[in-house]
Design a protein around this nucleic acid. Structure first.
Lengths: 90, 90
DNA sequence: TTCCTATTTAGCTGATTCCCTAATTAGCCA
DNA sequence: TGGCTAATTAGGGAATCAGCTAAATAGGAA
């Protein structure tokens, strides 16, 4: 939980997640969308991977990243529970 | 959004919010529940207040803090939207 | 093997975070 | 005013974070 929220607290990482929510992408594709260096993107991907929010699949020299939607969903659910926010109000 | 998620990324601040979700509390009451100094708690309260997640009301020398539930709810909702997580799966 | 591309790791710097103790402010009451 | 309590602000130090450039690794193709 802590690790996941830390990961979500950086705007660039949220953008990466939103991008992967639509479809898997290679590290290079992700990097090309943002105005930071590839090593910086690589670092953010590592943080997301350690938080288990994404996973990587190698295809030759290319690494493709996929979102782990269930982890995101469960985190949201746990947060709502923690603050007792109604998510099924009827 | 950024400021709010930053505020939520610290476990102690989440605990404070969860506590205030139940009922308003004075700074002293909050501090007494955790194993950190009062100035540290005061700092966390400031961060939560700047994120508009709580508000303070003065009563004599005592400052009482209240949660701003709507801000929390709207943030959760915005996050779910960002990641296209179904909250109305029907 | 050698070369080329994709990507990560290493190493560094500056900024931010988090905690502490000490000092200050705010309000109340005698 | 003086004194007491509640809480904050100030200041500082250790740790973590976020970005960069340069160097290293992994895999595929010639």
């Amino acid at each position: 939980m802590q690790e996941i929220l830390k990961a979500l607290s950086h705007p660039l990482r949220r953008e990466i997640l939103a991008m992967l929510r639509v479809a898997p992408r290679s590290a290079g594709e992700i990097a090309s969308k943002f105005d930071v260096s590839k090593p910086t993107i690589s670092g953010h991907l590592n943080i997301l991977r350690e938080a288990e929010l994404i996973e990587q699949v190698r295809n030759g020299t290319t690494l493709t990243y996929h979102i782990r939607l269930s982890v995101l969903e469960e985190t949201m659910s746990a947060l709502m529970d923690k603050f007792d926010i109604g998510k099924g109000e009827k």
